[in-house]
C-alpha cells in the first residue's frame, strides 16, 4: 500500500515535513506545493532531510510554485503540472494531505 503525501506548508513554519518523513513508506511519494517547495532550496536543512527519503520514493513539486519562488530544483525532483498531479494521485494507492 503506497501513499502520495501532499504538503503545502513551508518547512520553516512548522514540523509537518518532519512528521511526514517519519511516516514515509519505502514506495511512497511526496508532492510539494506552495511554500513547501522551499524545502527544495539547494543546500538547505530541509533539502538535506529530503535526501534521506527511501530510494524507491518519488519526489515531486508543482512547477508553477517552483517558478513563482525562483527555486531551481535538482535532478532528483520531478516538476509537475496539474495534469501530472492528477495522474500521481491515481498512481499511488492513497493520498494524504498534510492540511
Amino acid at each position: 500500500m503506497t501513499t502520495l503525501h501532499l504538503l503545502s506548508h513551508s518547512p520553516y513554519g512548522n514540523d509537518r515535513l518532519t512528521s511526514c518523513l517519519r511516516l514515509f513508506g519505502a514506495e511512497d511519494g511526496l508532492l510539494l506545493s506552495g511554500d513547501a517547495v522551499y524545502a527544495l532550496q539547494p543546500a538547505s536543512a530541509a533539502r538535506k532531510a529530503l535526501a534521506s527519503l527511501p530510494s524507491g520514493a518519488g519526489l515531486y513539486a508543482l512547477a508553477e510554485d517552483l517558478q513563482a519562488r525562483n527555486i531551481q530544483a535538482d535532478d532528483a525532483v520531478t516538476a509537475v503540472d496539474y495534469s501530472t498531479f492528477v495522474a500521481l494521485t491515481l498512481r499511488y494507492d492513497k493520498v494524504n494531505s498534510w492540511l
Partner: peptide, 29 residues
C-alpha cells in the same frame, strides 16, 4: 476514475486556487 474533492481553505489562500486547478485538470483528463 472518480474523484471526491474537499476544500478546507479560505478563497484568499493558495490552496483554494490549487483545488480549482486540480479539479479542472481532472475533468480535462
Amino acid at each position: 476514475m472518480k474523484f471526491a474533492i474537499a476544500l478546507f481553505a479560505a478563497p484568499h489562500q493558495p490552496a483554494a486556487r490549487r483545488a480549482l486547478r486540480f479539479a479542472q485538470a481532472a475533468l480535462a483528463d
